[in-house]
Amino acid sequence: MKNRKNLYVLGGIALLAIIPLIAKTIDNGYLQTLTFFVMMFVSMSVAWNIIGGYAGQISFGHGTFWGLGAFTTAIFAIRTGLPAWLAMPIGGLVAMLYGMSWGYPTLRLRGPYFAIATIGIGEATRLIMLNLDQLLKNSPLDWLVKDKPFTGGASGLILPSPNDFQANQLLLFYICLGFMILTIAISAWINNSRFGLALRAVNMDQEAAETLGVSASRYKVLALMVSAFLVGVAGSLYAQYVLFIDAREVFSFSNSIAMVLMPTVGGIGTLWGPALGALVFKVADDRLSSARFMLGGMQINLGDVNLMLYGLLLVLIILFEPGGVLGLLKRLRKK
């Protein structure tokens, strides 16, 4: 059984690895782009699940980590020309430190209060990043914005263009594949480790876990840091792929919402559910955006009802299959 599972995983990785080749063979480069974004969203969803699924701390502020990873990369790329492989961990580290700074006070909150606090942090971060250049002007840190924009404010930041776009995209594709595998491996390790057990105990009953000697605050902060690091690295990859970022977009609330929705749809608190959720989310979103059909002489553009369909799916899952798509698949297999 386990061997078969390993075989599936290896098969999946092999298939992803040859996507650029397939894309070239069938002459459809978009397959590579879409797969890149799916892998990035899978990584973000799996990373969010560490704090939101295993530890049960619903964060609506993960967009800040993604944005910080993207901005750290952009700022370093513009000011120092730092290569991608070095920019990624730095982006992750900045996001992790930021997560730690607000994780300590907010993770002491119980019930929905942590979730509410993360909404506030996300919005505050977005506004600070949007106005940071203005705030730095005529301050002791004025040198940061003297010659070049720091966050670019509302204008955003444009990253230096690579000499060879296609080669750079291919490189980023494989880096993203490696990063996604690493993220899932970290999540799998946490799932089976003492750390993961402690998180699940906190999720089920914090008081009971604490009576058994589990330091709930410490474990929750640690989980948030790991999660923030991984989402920060995903942000770094995004900035390098798109080559233009602006604070309004990368810190937008919709990114944080997406990170909550994907694991919920796929199967929150499981290893593979968040990955499956991201796959469904991204591919459905992409395909529906250009799908249209005729109904009684009227052209229906599915892109217009895309969010409604997704919302409907979410309601159905919450009502009838709390285990998400993964739970549904398991149930169908048993039958």
């Binding site: 480069g29 978009y30 782009t33």
Partner: peptide
């Protein structure tokens, strides 16, 4: 003509799609 939903990230993807899928 594809819909970018007034979203910058989606707009990048839409043009990528037009270039590589719709050619």
């Amino acid at each position: 003509m594809l819909d970018d939903k007034s979203d910058p990230t989606a707009s990048v993807q839409v043009y990528e799609k037009l270039a590589t899928e719709d050619k």
